[in-house]
């Protein structure tokens, strides 16, 4: 699809892509370097129980740091994905480029599908950037502190764990990207879509949890909402090897629920944009 090439061309040239990527990488670097310093060399290090120090050393050393990095991406990454998706979708309205493309005969459905593909790929780029940055800094920290490279843990099982973690992290970012693109289409504004997307990401899960504890009706629908299911699947990354066993039914249900939501978001995006009047800004 040529339109996807055009979307990726824009994504590559958009400054916010690189800024978000850089911020994610910097946060990852600061976390790994900071935790290593705090647990190993800071004046407070002696106060940390040895077992805890061992865990931190493991989590910040290469290659065992990779699942931790993925866990961070899956947990905090959606914030960045929301901002990028809102810009990719909403700015086309304020710049008038969406209506210009449509007026020149670009099929509306193709346009939305290309946008969806672009934001999903953008979330992959964000995830990859953070993971690469985290991996490099953990390698540097490992070598700088004179720790041995525990390459013996790189087994098929460990690689499977990383692959699964990457898939879950990408799903988490991609999910919120698609949701934000729908918000951008509905609101025709990058700013509104960003604000709404961030609020949903930060509050929806907690709000549903709180209301579910008060109202039985909300408790019934809570398993079908977004935040709780995203939390459920991202916790698999933290569980690591312990989650190797057949997935429990509630986790499987979370995947199904999120898949259904994803289909609904995609369908709504296509449906709304196909019927949207673009003449009025």
């Amino acid at each position: 699809m040529r339109i996807l090439t055009a979307e990726l061309f824009k994504l590559k040239r958009l400054r916010i892509t690189w800024i978000l990527l850089a911020v994610m990488a910097v946060i990852e670097i600061l976390m790994i370097a900071g935790m290593s310093y705090w647990a190993m060399t800071s004046p407070d290090a002696a106060k940390i129980p040895p077992e805890e120090r061992k865990k931190i050393a493991m989590a910040t050393s290469f290659p065992a740091s990779i699942p931790s990095t993925l866990s961070f991406v899956a947990t905090l990454g959606p914030l960045f994905a929301v901002i990028l998706a809102a810009r990719l979708g909403g700015d086309e309205y304020s710049w008038g480029t969406a209506k210009q493309l449509v007026s020149m005969g670009l099929d509306r459905c193709t346009y939305v599908i290309a946008k969806l593909a672009a934001v999903i790929l953008a979330s992959l780029v964000l995830m990859a950037g953070a993971v690469v940055a985290g991996t490099i800094i953990s390698l540097v920290v490992t070598l700088a502190l004179g720790r041995p490279l525990a390459l013996n843990i790189v087994t098929a099982s460990f690689l499977g764990e990383i692959a699964r973690g990457a898939g879950i992290a990408w799903l988490s970012l991609g999910f919120y990207s698609v949701l934000t693109l729908l918000l951008a289409i509905l609101t025709r504004s990058a700013t509104t879509a960003t604000a709404t997307g961030i609020l949903l990401f930060l509050l929806e899960g907690n709000l549903v949890g709180f209301l579910a504890s008060k109202f039985p009706l909300v408790a019934k629908i809570a398993p079908y909402t977004i935040g709780q299911n995203v939390t459920s699947i991202t916790s698999l990354i933290e569980q690591g090897a312990r989650a190797q066993a057949p997935l429990p039914p509630e986790v499987l249900r979370s995947f199904v629920v999120l898949a259904v939501w994803l289909v609904v978001f995609v369908a709504c995006s296509v449906w709304v944009f196909s019927r949207q009047e673009l003449g009025v800004d």
Binding site: G96, S103, G105, D281
Partner: peptide, 11 residues
């Protein structure tokens, strides 16, 4: 059709 629309600011 080629179009020149009002309010298009480009990228």
């Amino acid at each position: 059709v080629g179009s020149l629309l009002d309010g298009v600011r480009f990228y």
